[in-house]
């Protein structure tokens, strides 16, 4: 609990780190209608693609400096030698980022979906997809940023973006399934399965990578 409170406090203090990605998401979603001729039918065509890409980009920004400051001021080294498992601390940090950034973005996605499609049941279905995908993306970008710890976030994004593409494909297919009213539960289980593996493995891998940086 001590670490949980500490991590929440640290992220809350850095307003730019949690508010920035939410604003980026908001701006992308607001910019979308401006790029096409506004009619409800036109808006719906590409809406979900823009939504998933906006979530992806926001999560990329959310993890931009997730370890940089702690790496520079020596906090990561301290955490490594502390009694608490380092992978647990990494997992906790990702969870806090998801709670403070991923969840609000998913809720905003629901609101934008409702506003665009005017379909409550469809928008409610979007919510779990947005929540799961944001958590998956967050983990993947954390992995990328740990690899490129003192080399800038662009390198991290480049090396982990390919791994995020299958998730985008699944999201696209699930929307098609929902719209065609065919069974989409397989996609939910696929994302859930991937998420459960990622939640366990990524913090462990990231902890080893950070150890490699500090050795």
């Amino acid at each position: 609990m001590k670490y949980l409170r500490l991590e929440v406090l640290k992220l809350r203090k850095k307003t730019r780190s949690w508010l920035g990605p939410i604003l980026v998401f908001w701006l992308i979603m607001l910019a979308y209608p401006l790029t096409i001729e506004v009619s409800p039918k036109n808006l719906e065509i590409g809406f979900f693609s823009v939504l998933w890409i906006a979530i992806l980009l926001s999560m990329m920004f959310a993890t931009e400096d997730i370890f940089t400051e702690d790496y520079n001021d020596g906090y990561l080294e301290q955490s490594l030698i502390s009694e608490t498992s380092f992978s647990y601390l990494v997992g906790l940090r990702v969870l806090i980022h998801w709670l403070l950034i991923g969840i609000p973005i998913s809720l905003l996605g629901f609101v934008f979906s409702l506003g665009t499609t005017e379909n409550l049941s469809l928008s409610l279905l979007i919510l779990p997809f947005a929540m799961m995908s944001s958590y998956i993306f967050l983990n993947l970008f954390v992995l990328g940023n740990s690899l490129s710890l003192n080399k800038g976030s662009v390198l991290g994004a480049i090396i982990t973006l390919p791994m995020a593409l299958p998730v985008l494909i699944v999201l696209g297919k699930s929307i098609t399934a929902i719209q065609l009213e065919i069974n989409y539960s397989g996609f939910i289980f696929l994302l859930l399965g991937s998420l459960s593996i990622i939640i366990v493995t990524i913090p462990i891998v990231v902890s080893f990578i950070i150890k490699a940086h500090l050795e």
């Binding site: 992995l143 690899l147 490129s148 080399k151 390198l155 480049i158 090396i159 982990t160 390919p162 791994m163 891998v205 080893f208 990578i209 490699a212 940086h213 050795e215």
Partner: peptide
């Protein structure tokens, strides 16, 4: 991505370790 990750570190040992982790994932 693997090639660019490795080439961005001048410390070969560190680059090897990070490259190996990324290749496994």
């Amino acid at each position: 991505g693997l090639i660019s990750l490795h080439s961005s570190f001048s410390n070969y040992e560190k680059a090897d370790k990070l490259l190996s982790w990324l290749a496994i994932v």
